[in-house]
Write a protein that binds this DNA or RNA. Sequence first.
DNA 1: TCCATGTTTCCAATATGCTGGAAATATGAG
DNA 2: CTCATATTTCCAGCATATTGGAAACATGGA
Lengths: 123, 123
Amino acid sequence: MESKAAAASLSALGHEGRLAIFRLLVKAGPVGVAAGEIARRLAMLPNSLSANLNVLSHAGLITSRREGRSIIYCADYAAMTGLLGFLMEDCCSGAPEICAPLSDIVAKAADCDGTCLTELETA
Amino acid sequence: MESKAAAASLSALGHEGRLAIFRLLVKAGPVGVAAGEIARRLAMLPNSLSANLNVLSHAGLITSRREGRSIIYCADYAAMTGLLGFLMEDCCSGAPEICAPLSDIVAKAADCDGTCLTELETA
DNA sequence: TCCATGTTTCCAATATGCTGGAAATATGAG
DNA sequence: CTCATATTTCCAGCATATTGGAAACATGGA
């Protein structure tokens, strides 16, 4: 991932509402969530939600597909791992201190038992 | 890390110039880089650099200390790992597809040999 | 066809962010 | 004290983002 695209993705996520949307979609998995359902769960107006979904989509972070009258949105996992990889780049060569905690984080993520990444905030 | 702080950090990084600054500081490690040196390396005007450093500092992503006439800036590793942890939260319980690539990324980061995270962009 | 539902687009007001020039502050050297 | 260096602050102009209301579009059912 190049710097420009990474900045665009980070900018898209640098908005509390959009970050909430993205996290909701990541949690939802490949099944995705309909726009109306997102609006209901996050208490957003349909027009501003649509605008924010458009920003996330334009940044390549989410995808959409129509299902009947609803439009289902999904987190784009490749984009997310690409972004995380970009952020982690050059961290261990320059700063081993940052590398070790990251290893701990993903060591817990490695054994996907459904509860592995819930208490990371205290780390 | 709470959602508001995470959004603030992401917003701070969602600017090509600031992202370049932050990555430079991450690469530099705990030694840090003087403001003037950053301006020279990234070809930035001193006033806009100062403004961007202030944004990053206010978001908690970097720290500063004075050394003689220079002010040395450093990446805040705890903030960065906190942010990455926040982004990875809930990913594996909801979407195992995103968890596996992350494991790969940090598996390479785990053995800090200085070249472990250089070809992640192709992943 | 007509209607209800789901989503988007249009629009205008407001707010916030970015940029670059110039001046101001802080530190250290002579 | 005076000067050079390093960095920040001030300021104004410009651009972009955010918001909410209202209308428009798309889909499926009766």
